[in-house]
Amino acid sequence: MNQGRVIYEDEAEPHFRLAYPSPALAVFVEYYFEVNQPATLSNPLYLNALPNLANLVCISLTTQSWLTINQKNGTVKTIQGSRFFGNLTDLHTSIYPAGVHEFYVKFKPGMLGKLLRFQNIEVENANTDLSAFIRSDEWEDRLQTAASFNARVNLVEMMLLQRTQAVELDYRFQVVQRTLHYFAKQGINQRLNLPSICRELGVSYPSLHRYFTEALGYSPKYCQKLLRFKHALQLYKRHGSRYPFEDAGYTDFSHFLKDTRQLTQRLPSDL
């Protein structure tokens, strides 16, 4: 059953482009991406957004509206124009009846809050007009007239560089970012569980917990759970249920299944 699908960063999609930030912005930006996929009213495009920690800035390159449905509480929103997306705690399915052409900046967890001075937890599941946060008309004008994805990336980098220079990241925030970096590597080196990460960073777990709550509004365990799930779902899509999910930080496939249900209320095959 078509209930939407998740697009991953490394997917070879003809309608999906991705670029990583320059070194000067790598602390702030995870990556830039653009979805340009046609659809028809009779065969709309369905995409899923997993629960995550990132804040996104979406610049709409068309005037088409689309729907987003919170799969946990059923809330439906009609979206049009450029948007600000807060970190998600629930699975969201987007339905694009007339196709989609949007440019996104995916910020590292908590970083957009540093830039625009808001607490991460305040924008949980937020989906609001971008103009509430920045001069979106200026961004829209420049990005909509840019000739290509690469041109848009260059423009956004120039605009972001001006803003990021004034931002200072304190020690606690840096510890959080380094921990998240370890979480992202958990599939590669599974010995990096929370006690060992605390040892590596020279902080106690209660301190780490406090830093995470201050910076992101969530516990380190919850953040680890989200990142582990995203990575494991990608492995499931590539290899199916026979993949050794122990390598992704789970006890077994059932453990992964339980997390999937808890985070998305769905089976992994429906994502």
Partner: peptide, 8 residues
Amino acid sequence: LRIFETFQ
């Protein structure tokens, strides 16, 4: 109605 309008 929002869904109907999104589908034009």
